[in-house]
Design a protein around this nucleic acid. Structure first.
Lengths: 343, 343
DNA sequence: TTGAAAGCGCTAACAC
DNA sequence: GTGTTAGCGCTTTCAA
């Protein structure tokens, strides 16, 4: 296999200059229909593909967007990615994807790397860089959009789920069904989503007149294993003091909790009600189907691309906040024994 | 924001020539330790990042691998991607990821596109390009690795799961538990995986002395919805002729089947046994936990990268076939009524 | 040990 | 409507 054909090769065959080829292929109006045809045919025959590296070099902008996520295995990330994919594809951009394994240092390293690849902009999903670090973020001359993280700055934009509201929604739903002892299974500590959902949980509690109990916030990390552990924690509590419901950081950990409950003979929702977060595709097919708070993940991805491209076009961009609804399914019921308000 | 600093900027500040900077940064031995230090410091201060586009242009090879998958939402794809991610990251390669939405034409278009980006090689996950089309595949002068698809050719390599064996494993497991009426819920028709699993299913049946019944192969596409439909199909069969077990193309559709069974009051595994394929993370937390055939998805991804880089280094590369084991969990039991061998 | 010069493939003035 | 020229940021001869 000889080397990839370049416009020079086409020019030679067509007997024209390289710039004519460039123009013909770019669809410049100032070229005769005839030569355009001829050149396009030759390009086809030679199986020509333009070198985007060269084009990038001269135009200074490449049709690539950099995307960074803590993990590619998380269904939430996958959903966001689909939105990013769809929107960017429509606008003619490719995506350079990197995962940071949830490590803030890796994350910064990835940013550097992608910038080196001349990406036109950066989308960062669920950044784990601590907010304090904010000012220490490396400055690039390309726009950056954070999805569900907040690092204010020039050229930095945000697309977020209203996590506080979501947490409030989930907890209120439980409270309205008569639960007075609601626990929260947390997510990654560094994450802003976790903190916001926790805050919403707390607000709902307090608005309803219940004291916030730190001991009912069980630490987690958003994995099914965390859900399993949470259920075992629940079983260890004295029966009279057990929460009657769990609001979980995400569907994945809620699903883990469901699974462990099944194995331990705990009936859901009879013995324990559960609400998740995300409305992942799996939530619909879980057993029983999981009540959850919708997160418009695809929409987040789509919006992030929209914001990025708007910024690129020097249009004004404002941060956007998306609210999801509560999706009632089958993991919530009234508590078996209506406990007397004990606060 | 002024433009990204280039080696020229560094050279000017350091009072040396651009080539010296290039050498210093590349770690060439023919440079004084002193200047190297100085240049590196300046590079740091200027927040310099090399332009990979420029480097690609001159070296002719970029540190990017192109990856194409039908969908990014599929957990199996996500797992393969993790393997690809891990292996390529270790070797200093980034990944340019594109999804084809399962459309063969898009797939070819994506190949072209990624080649235009000067990727060093291509990894294609579960290609939907029909095998006959094989010879019509565009020829590139970069190595291509297909994961779970087969398109022989020069510079084309394969990493596959032994799907035939997996299908045989699942079916045999069911047969050994006393099932005589085993149905197969299929996957995407164009996919090679589907055909191979079906073939294994058929072989197991015939080896055990049962006739293969085309009417027991229910068409599907690997989604949970396909699983739901399959269960409803099952319910419509006259009770005396109903299969007592299902081997499903993948875990996702098996999970859908489980969910529908729960909603219709069909007890798993008492009324119906189910075996999936993939051993997705979700299989472990399903209710009941799903018996399935392991697919070493991460390993597939890892191997694909290894093969690609080996080919790139002009080392001999052979196709690799990975076998997974049957993971017995809780969705298989002996059939309720031991049906008399009726074939 | 360092510099000068050429060139990777392409686009974009600027000519004609 | 088409050709000429220069240059994007980098690496890599070839000289010194």
């Amino acid at each position: 296999m000889t080397h990839r054909p370049s416009i020079k090769d086409i020019a030679r065959v067509a007997g024209v200059s390289p710039s004519t080829v460039s123009r013909a292929l770019a669809g410049s109006p100032r070229i005769s229909e005839q030569t355009r045809q001829r050149i396009q045919t030759i390009a086809q025959e030679l199986n020509y593909t333009p070198s985007l590296a060269a084009r990038t070099l001269v135009t200074g902008a490449s049709p690539m967007l950099g995307v960074i996520a803590p993990s590619l295995a998380d269904p939430y990330v996958a959903a966001v990615m689909q939105g990013v994919e769809a929107a960017s594809h429509d606008r003619g951009f490719q995506r350079l994807v990197a995962s940071s394994q949830g490590d803030p240092e890796q994350e910064v390293a990835m940013m550097q790397l992608l910038v080196g690849h001349d990406v036109a902009g950066l989308i960062i999903i669920s950044s784990r860089i601590p907010p304090e670090h904010g000012a220490g973020l490396p400055r690039f001359d390309i726009p950056v959009v954070f999805i569900n993280a907040f690092h204010p700055g020039e050229g930095i934009y945000h697309v977020m789920t209203d996590n506080e509201h979501g947490g409030w929604l989930a907890t209120t739903h439980l409270l309205e069904r008569g639960h007075t002892r609601v626990a929260y299974l947390g997510g990654p500590q560094q994450g802003r989503s976790h903190t916001a959902r926790l805050a919403g949980y707390r607000r709902a509690l307090e608005e309803a007149g219940y004291a916030y109990q730190p001991s009912w916030v069980v630490p987690g990390d958003g994995t099914p294993q965390a859900g399993r552990k949470a259920l075992r924690w629940w079983l260890r509590q004295p029966e009279s003091q057990r929460p009657t419901a769990f609001f979980c950081y995400n569907d994945l950990s809620a699903l883990g909790l469901l699974s462990e409950a099944y194995q331990q003979g705990v009936a859901i929702p009879e013995d324990l009600s559960v609400v998740g977060f995300d409305n992942a595709p799996l939530a619909e097919i879980s057993i029983p189907p999981l009540t959850t708070v919708e997160q418009k993940a695809r929409e987040l991805g789509r919006q992030a691309v929209a914001s990025l491209l708007a910024a690129l076009a020097s249009k004004p961009v404002t941060d956007v906040i998306l609210r999801g609804e509560l999706i009632p399914r089958a993991t919530v019921a009234a508590p078996r024994v209506s406990v007397i308000r004990d606060q």
